[in-house]
Design a protein around this nucleic acid. Structure first.
Lengths: 238, 238
DNA sequence: TTTTTTATAGTCGTCTCGACCATTAATGGT
DNA sequence: ACCATTAATGGTCGAGACGACTATAAAAAA
């Protein structure tokens, strides 16, 4: 922050990129848009765009999220800064520094193609082939971060609708981590963690299919998990 | 990343800011430089500077770290991106987007005033009065992040010299967290965590003052802590 | 020598967690 | 109507981790 007068500084273009994640059909899916022009024409990319002159990166991210998903109200969604990507050659045309954000959505409406005429769609995380720019890296970083934060925060509820069953919450963990969890143990842990979830008092229940109907819960006031809900250690020991 | 031709984009200045932390005299201290010019002339600020045209933020951060600390070799130091600050009014002169980094130093040489003629010094974290710009916020975020990462990573060794005692390692935790830990329990936990520390085979020992000499350890190959070393819960329950 | 200081070793009870098994309440098929 | 299936919920049991605490060892200071 020193040397304003001593050193010349280069102007950069600053953008935000969004890794918008949801769980559809039991799979982790990501919102992608198809690029219409070079470079990477025809390739899929994370949604994003330039910061407007008087916008912070967070504000720009929320604006882009609204535009790209077509949702009327994005104020309640979980939006979190991931990290900033600034490799000099990450955009072949010019110097672009991008602040990446991760957004978590509960339900998954088919995206109404955003402001641009580009196509937009959900794609399963593991099928999101090679993306444009360094977006593969950004997406992988987002997945890592979310997986880690499931352990010691309550963000799993951000993937769920306002009222959800413990089975749905468990599916979030299993889908993001790619591992199976023991249902009674998961239940015991979640209910023992103060403020994680709150039972819907009306003893309401949901009928999703067959089997005993499940009790409904809402997200609780807690944000952190103490002690954490640890991911089961990988089997293979190299 | 769409709309290059549709929307005009504003050029921004991009800087890096560094929260350089160390432990001196049993206290968490931060490297600060005194601003010589307006705005915030005479105030203390985090070191930092503009990205050079062909530099990534990480490269710029490491360069600034070397310049500011005067250390010959900063390649082994722990340097990690914290987050990006982009509020439109964070610098009264112009639009500046800053990528903040956290650096952890083992020993703490008195800083040789960097390239700029500004004064540089270590200051205890809790005495780092009001800083210039939004640097109070950045510094607090860095402290939060480091405190959290002590729980589930091995970064504590980044505060220690190449060879250290378990007592020194424990002091890192106690200083950053501001809590006392039980020595035998801390020892048991660290030694039980595979790859956290490795005993120096020569049965070497260090004489720091009185008392029984302690065995020396080096940082192990592990980076994560499974299960984590949880911070003791705060006493007051609001 | 005695006291002080710090490192290291060990104990014990509580709590958590993983791996199970059992029960309940719904659906679908015969 | 009956039974198999499915999923939620409830509970048990043993291993392990952790907090609190006591004891021993090895050095310097008094």
């Amino acid at each position: 922050m020193e040397g304003y007068d001593k050193y010349a500084f280069e102007p950069f273009a600053v953008t935000v990129d969004l890794a918008v994640l949801t769980i559809r059909e039991g799979r982790l899916q990501v919102l992608l848009i198809e690029r219409g022009q070079e470079p990477y024409a025809g390739r899929w990319a994370l949604p994003g765009g330039f910061l407007l002159p008087h916008e912070s990166a967070g504000t720009a991210a929320r604006r882009e999220l609204a535009e790209e998903t077509g949702l009327a109200d994005v104020s309640g969604l979980h939006l979190e800064q991931l990290r900033t990507y600034s490799e000099p050659d990450r955009d072949p045309r010019m110097r672009v520094v991008s602040v990446a954000y991760t957004a978590l959505l509960p339900d998954a409406p088919e995206p109404r193609g955003g402001g641009d005429a580009a196509r937009a769609r959900w794609l399963p995380y593991d099928e999101a082939g090679p993306l444009a720019f360094d977006h593969d890296r950004i997406l992988a970083d987002a997945h890592d971060r979310i997986g880690a934060k499931l352990e010691y925060t309550c963000i799993a509820t951000a993937f769920c609708p306002p009222e959800f069953t413990l089975g749905e919450l468990q599916q979030v963990y299993e889908t993001v981590w790619g591992t199976a969890l023991d249902r009674p143990n998961f239940r015991r842990k979640v209910l023992a963690t103060d403020g994680f979830v709150a039972a819907v008092p009306g003893a309401a229940r949901l009928t999703g299919g067959r089997g005993k109907p499940a009790a409904l819960y809402r997200a609780g006031p807690a944000t952190g998990l103490h002690p954490p809900l640890l991911r089961p250690p990988r089997e293979g020991r190299p």
